[in-house]
């Protein structure tokens, strides 16, 4: 029988297809993230008294807080699936580059987060009568989510190997992800309040810089996080 070690791209895609197939069968993770997001939004509604005036200015903040919380839920779940039945060892045993594991998991995590965001945006628009269907806003959300999952995937790989596991991920992730969340809030808020493009440019640049730096660093250090 013929075998040949798959390329980085093929191995990455194999992991993504496996994750998506499992999730789109059970919808366990995505439905949990969705319900959780809706609850967060409802709580914010009463906590912040989201009347028409305040809505305009806090929408971006509420959205990103929701995404960040739901994101950690997904990141934790996605990694414990690998850890619980030793599947992480199964991945490490395959003759593929370790970065394929990182990119595979990161792309799956990003997909789950984007699916949740794609459902939350119209729901939020409906509930609060704000128009969130804007291509520029989608771009900002994409950039923010990429940065968040890039760091989140690396850190969830680490936290899954500790004694405290699920509790540890948000504590590790939030302080390091503050730049991406703040820049995303600033950029989305600017778009929603109709600010000049020059005002949005700086947070947008920071988002791009953060994404590039942290994808590169995670790619470089991932080996250290999975080896023994």
């Amino acid at each position: 029988m013929k075998t040949s070690s798959p390329s980085l791209l093929k191995a990455t895609l194999a992991i993504v297809r496996k994750d998506l197939a499992a999730e789109f069968r059970s919808f366990e993770m995505i439905s949990a993230m969705l319900v959780f997001s809706l609850l967060v939004i409802i709580i914010f509604n009463f906590a912040l008294e989201l009347d028409i005036k305040t809505r305009q200015s806090v929408t971006a903040g509420v959205l990103w807080t929701t995404f960040a919380f739901a994101g950690t839920l997904g990141l934790n779940r996605s990694m414990s699936v690998e850890k619980d039945r030793g599947c992480m060892d199964g991945l490490l045993l395959a003759p593929v580059d370790r970065s394929a594991i990182y990119f595979g998991k990161a792309i799956s995590n990003l997909t789950f987060m984007l699916v949740v965001e794609a459902i939350i945006l119209p729901v939020y628009s409906m509930l609060y009568n704000v128009n969130l269907f804007r291509i520029d806003l989608v771009g900002v959300i994409l950039l923010g989510s990429i940065g968040y999952t890039a760091v989140g995937t690396l850190l969830s790989t680490m936290s899954a190997q500790t004694r405290t596991r699920e509790i540890l991920l948000p504590i590790l992730l939030f302080p390091v992800a503050i730049p991406v969340l703040l820049a995303a809030v600033k950029a989305s808020g600017g778009l929603l309040t109709g600010a000049e493009f020059s005002e949005i440019l700086t947070p947008l640049n920071i988002l791009i810089v953060y994404d590039v730096i942290f994808i590169a660093v995670a790619f470089m250090v991932f080996d250290f996080v999975v080896e023994e």
């Binding site: 760091v151 690396l154 850190l155 680490m158 190997q161 500790t162 590790l172 302080p175 390091v176 992800a177 503050i178 730049p179 703040l182 820049a183 600033k186 700086t202 947070p203 920071i206 810089v209 953060y210 730096i213 942290f214 660093v217 250090v221 250290f224 996080v225 080896e227």
Partner: peptide, 25 residues
């Protein structure tokens, strides 16, 4: 030691960016 090193590295990169972002506010 390995995880600690990775985390200080991430922190060392993220803190200056945090500073830059907050200055926007």
């Amino acid at each position: 030691a390995r995880f600690g090193a990775v985390y200080t590295l991430l922190g060392g990169l993220s803190a200056p960016i945090t500073f830059m972002v907050i200055r926007l506010f």
